[in-house]
Design a protein around this nucleic acid. Structure first.
Length: 572
RNA sequence: AUCCCGAUGGUGUAAUUGGUAACACACCAGAUUCUGGUUCUGGCUUUGGGGGUUCAAGUCCUCCUCGGGAUGCCA
């Protein structure tokens, strides 16, 4: 049974890639029967901020692993051991984001605070076996006593406090008899250990603070290192997957489990957290962006948060695909944001309905088209899908085209509209520009063009070709819309490379959000709902903004631009 | 400085665990196209350095170099 459960390259990834190093470890454990046939993981967020794409990687890893193995289980556990930083608001937001990603933890929602009583029993065990003591040194002195990586620390004068006294003081700590920081419970390990984490680490600190779930019951709160392994053990976690910065803490994780009567001993495995170019993944910085109103909340479409990407129009499947494709390793790496954009495009190319929207309108009068006349064309919704269906597009004498689809002095390589040149209006007619009208400043304000009636539907009976096809909307039928173009939040590829003396705000991209208020979109977009992807033909993938979009005042966000080889050519 | 971890093309991840270094992205060139999108074809570039074991090393050993982490009563 366990053997059949083992993931190999063939079934996991169509023979392309072998299992990642974590799944290899699990495969081995299954072979040796280390945990029987069980595979049980968890995602343990601290409810002190919103989830970002880096958390999504971790969720997809942890929960994805459990889903991969027959009978695998995964828990959602809030690691709420620090009452001063955590809030219920975040708990709800985190649950919503994970659900949206498509994971269902069923009845396995837990809180570290549910285990506070058990933690206390474990602490008593440690005290009773002489492996923990109450220290009364002030924080600064504890720091001094700890030494440095090159100099060993020295024992606290309170290190050999009698067990009975420790017990009594711990009880008093618990009951709120002391002020914050007055005493601390520490593990008695080794003050000269080469691993600083092992130099008598803190177990309980006094915080006379109200906890979002346990209220005023506790006056002491457990430290991460002490609590985390117990949380895992209590839940029967088999593989406790965390990020690289906890590698130095693994000996501690194991020490705490080894020195009490823990129900089992999960294995901690570390992987490299996600770094994405042109953005930051630090909760502190993201919180700062929000509180200083540099962005429009945690779900600003420029934010690398799950809720930000959701509002922008990214789909959960794209995020999951991304998480899978970037892989897992122990190397600190920087993923190119363009790779994420590629994943989004790859999906939306298949799923997004094509529509026409003119972002920067230029009026075109078709001088040989009857005034007041309207006709309709059938337009395919998605050429990638066989039965993608069609919709009607109205056409009339005055239309809008994209301003940069016209050039007065056009180079040879420019395949779009220019005086005397002919292009195709997508789905409609061939169009030739005859005249242009300018304002006093010399800006082109209107084009006078003619269509070839013979080319109705988009093809010429005489077989002549046009180099360019452009999109358009009928002026009389267009819907006014606001369109927001989003781009990278920061201008620096690797935000870890910030120059000294500068702060991350110095690298904010002023063009990360461009709001266009005079856009003209085709009538079918009247039914757009947030989350549904559209391809604005030749422009990019867009979705209605979940915060501001209304039927009366449409607002569309650009999820990602289309590849643009003309723009690339121009740069040369 | 000490300890821990890591190093495979421009980027990210593989390599049947000692047996032809591959997949994707990016980039370049061309073809196709009623989206300068998509699709297709071709090209480019890789095992950080020295030494060793072996018939055979990206993989094992050793030294070096470089990068990251660790000196919270944060997680």
């Amino acid at each position: 049974m366990g053997k059949e459960n083992i993931i190999n390259a063939d079934e996991n990834d169509k023979g392309k890639k072998g299992p990642d190093f974590i799944r290899q470890i699990i495969n081995r454990d299954l072979e040796t029967g280390k945990n029987g046939t069980r595979v049980h993981t968890r995602f343990p967020p601290e409810p002190n901020g919103y989830l970002h794409i880096g958390h999504a990687k971790s969720i997809c890893l942890n929960f994805g692993i459990a889903e991969d193995y027959e009978g695998g289980l995964y828990n959602l556990r809030f690691d709420d051991t620090n009452p001063e930083k955590e809030e219920t608001e975040y708990v709800e937001a985190i649950k919503e984001d994970i659900k949206w990603l498509g994971f269902d933890w069923k009845d396995r929602l837990f809180f570290a605070s549910d285990y506070f009583d058990k933690f206390y029993e474990f602490a008593l065990e440690l005290v009773n076996s002489g492996k923990a003591y109450v220290d009364s040194l002030p924080a600064e002195e504890i720091r001094e006593y700890r030494g440095t990586p090159t100099k060993p620390g020295k024992n606290s004068p309170y290190r050999d406090r009698p067990i009975e006294e420790n017990l009594e003081m711990l009880e008093n700590m618990k009951n709120g008899k002391y002020k914050d920081g007055e005493h601390i419970l520490r593990a008695k390990i080794d003050m000269s250990h080469v691993n600083m984490n092992m130099r008598d680490p803190a177990i309980y600190r006094i915080k006379n603070a109200r906890h979002h779930r346990t209220g005023d019951k506790w006056h002491i709160y457990p430290m991460y290192d002490f609590a985390h392994g117990y949380e895992d053990a209590i839940e029967g976690i088999t593989h406790s997957i965390c990020t690289l910065e906890f590698e130095n803490h693994r000996p501690l994780y194991d020490w705490f489990l080894n020195n009490v009567s823990a129900p089992c001993h999960p294995q901690q495995i570390e992987f490299a957290r996600l770094n994405l170019s042109y953005t930051v993944m630090s909760k502190r910085l993201l919180l700062e962006l929000v509180t200083s109103n540099l962005v429009d909340g945690w779900d600003d479409p420029r934010m690398p948060t799950i809720s930000g990407f959701r509002r922008r129009g990214v789909t959960p499947t794209a995020i999951r695909k991304f998480a899978k494709e970037i892989g897992v390793s122990k190397v600190n790496s920087l993923i190119d944001m363009n790779f994420f954009y590629y994943i989004i495009r790859e999906e939306m190319n298949e799923t997004a309905d094509r529509v026409m929207a003119v972002l920067d309108p230029l009026r075109v009068v078709i001088t040989n088209y009857e005034e007041g006349k309207t006709e309709e064309f059938d337009a395919d919704n998605n050429p990638q899908i066989e039965d993608g269906g069609t919709r009607k597009i109205p056409f009339s004498r005055e239309i809008y085209i994209e301003r940069d689809d016209f050039m007065e002095d056009a180079p040879k390589k420019f395949f779009r509209l220019a005086p005397g040149r002919e292009v195709r209006l997508k789905h409609a007619y061939f169009l030739t520009c005859n005249d242009l009208i300018k304002d006093k400043e010399g800006n082109v304000t209107e084009l006078h063009c003619t269509i070839d009636p013979e080319t109705r539907g988009g093809n010429a009976p005489d077989g002549r070709k046009v180099k360019g096809t452009i999109h358009w909307v009928s002026a009389a039928h267009a819907i006014d819309a606001e369109v927001r173009l989003y781009d990278n939040l920061f201008t620096l590829e690797d935000m870890a490379d910030m120059e000294e003396g500068k702060e991350y705000k110095d690298y904010l991209n002023p063009e990360s959000e461009i709001i266009l208020k005079n856009c003209k979109v085709e009538p079918s977009l009247a039914h757009a709902v947030p989350g549904a992807p559209y391809q604005f033909l030749r422009k990019g993938y867009f979705s209605a903004d979940s915060k501001y979009h209304t039927r009366e005042k449409p607002v569309f966000n650009r999820v990602v631009a289309l590849k643009d080889s003309w723009a690339k050519l121009q740069k040369k």
